[in-house]
Design a protein around this nucleic acid. Structure first.
Lengths: 281, 281
DNA sequence: CGAAGATTGATCGTTTTCGATCATTTTCCA
DNA sequence: TGGAAAATGATCGAAAACGATCAATCTTCG
């Protein structure tokens, strides 16, 4: 019997080869889960039997996959299957990205969310880690939110009684955000207590926080300008990557929250930088 | 986590009480089934327990309802509930009437989408009918989109290679859009070829297009100002409602696309207005 | 008013799914 | 290469959902 259904090599793996060089290809599980989400987006519903046949795996594994995906907010379990969540269209690429390092991101988000005080105006940069922070915060009342991330706005929109401001601008597919000069101008009209800033990479040697493109960097700098305290969130994989554009110096931000995987790198940093880091877990 | 679930209910009841009374009330069962379908259109999945609680009926009745609706091709049963089916055409018995509003919106959207030319910049007002238009257009290339509707942006974001601009501003739950002075200022920086404008109600006697709140009206007027041609979309139910705020006069828009259900009302209108209407189907 | 028909609710035995546990296989590093 | 960790599969009792049947209630109309 043919164990796996590889009729089409999903563009997913290509994506990861290009952009996640550090950690290599998707695992079988991630690949499968991404396909499940993809399938759900097309058909709205899949039952467990279908999935076992399609991927030639046991019901136990299917259940585990679905539970995990539900935990990541990518679908909703039902008796005998799962349904698509229709808040916002998520594509499978993002699905896989969300799943990877889910636990670390949740831990980081918990710590970052703890730094937000009641009554704060919170500016959330687009990104999967910031999205986790949004999930932690979206229950709390008396907060005001601003974000340029489509998925973050969608997440926040699920709850009543909060002030939510979406940053306008040109939509970009890569991180599902709004950016460009219009976005920057828009941001500058606000005044935020806390900024949750996503880093694409962190270069401890040079003391820099970086992001994927100059346009993102420019938006990020506008965000920093209008915020009283800057909280950078980055899982450990960000410390061994590099990315194109410099956003700011590490010593100029309030704090960088990361996970235990970055411990060794942080310990090797000079005192001045080291005190900026907070390790979750 | 407690996502809101009660937001559709009120508008549904209003709709049915207001507009179905005259020509013979729906039976309790029909009423219930129609609501189930509407519910599914919005949230993709409902479980049986939820339905028993919402309508205060037994599981047996819920099952019978779902079986019947499945027979009519309006949904698909699952263990413990039902999921939405992305339908094509239905056989026109009891089913046609239930999905009529959906079908009419799709027909209206088809006509409105046909008025958009290649290369156009299209401004899409938030709303379910405009969302249908977005679905028709989102495949086409060489279009530029601007919208203040969260769901519309999400829909458009599913496709590559299009320019999409999201209007920034304060998020409002009622129609899941961004509005307020920031939104208006944002909109005025653009220049659009076509505007797809959602009407909450149309008062033919007074010749007015109306919407639910002054804030929405204000945003709508900004949209009108920057657009070369205004295409209003409204199903026939909008002609027998009334809503709070005036947006503009019918004679000042380019065209109003509606469905055959509004035929009699339109025919009774003075010539000057009548030529503004286009009936889909 | 009252009987026929339709709608709804309750019951019960059967089938399906769930979740937890444990054995087995695979993967990943040191 | 060997061993730990992770992923997967199998099993089984419990819980949930199903369908069918029958009784109770509501509608309709002669």
């Amino acid at each position: 019997m043919s164990p796996r259904n590889d009729r089409y090599r999903s563009s997913l793996n290509e994506f990861y080869h290009l952009h996640e060089k550090g950690r290599g290809v998707l695992t079988q599980a991630e690949d499968r889960q991404a396909k499940i989400v993809e399938l759900l987006r097309e058909q709205n519903f899949v039952d467990i039997r279908t999935l076992t046949e399609r991927f030639d795996i046991s019901v136990a594994t299917v259940r585990r996959d679905l539970d995990e995906l539900e935990g990541a907010g990518l679908l909703r379990r039902t008796h005998g299957g799962a349904v698509n969540v229709n808040q916002v269209a998520q594509d499978a690429t993002n699905a896989a990205r969300l799943i990877s390092k889910q636990a670390e991101k949740a831990a980081i988000a918990e710590v970052a969310a703890g730094m937000v005080a009641d009554g704060d105006t919170v500016l959330l940069d687009a990104g999967t880690t910031a999205l986790e922070v949004a999930k932690k915060l979206s229950g709390r009342s008396s907060l005001t939110f601003i974000s340029n991330g489509l998925d973050i706005i969608a997440e926040l929109s699920r709850f009543d009684g909060q002030s939510i401001y979406s940053v306008g601008g040109e939509y970009t597919e890569t991180n599902r955000s709004f950016r460009g000069p219009l976005a920057e101008h828009f941001i500058r009209q606000f005044n935020a207590d806390k900024l949750i800033l996503n880093a694409a990479s962190i270069d401890v040697d040079r003391g820099l926080i970086c992001t994927g493109s100059p346009l993102n960097a420019s938006v990020a700098r506008a965000m920093i300008e209008i915020s009283r305290r800057v909280i950078v969130v980055a899982d450990h994989s960000k410390f061994t990557k590099s990315s194109l554009s410099v956003v700011t110096r590490i010593e100029d931000v309030g704090v960088v929250v990361t996970d235990a995987g970055a411990k060794s790198i942080i310990d090797a940093a000079p005192d001045k930088l080291r005190k900026k880091f907070v390790v979750a877990n």
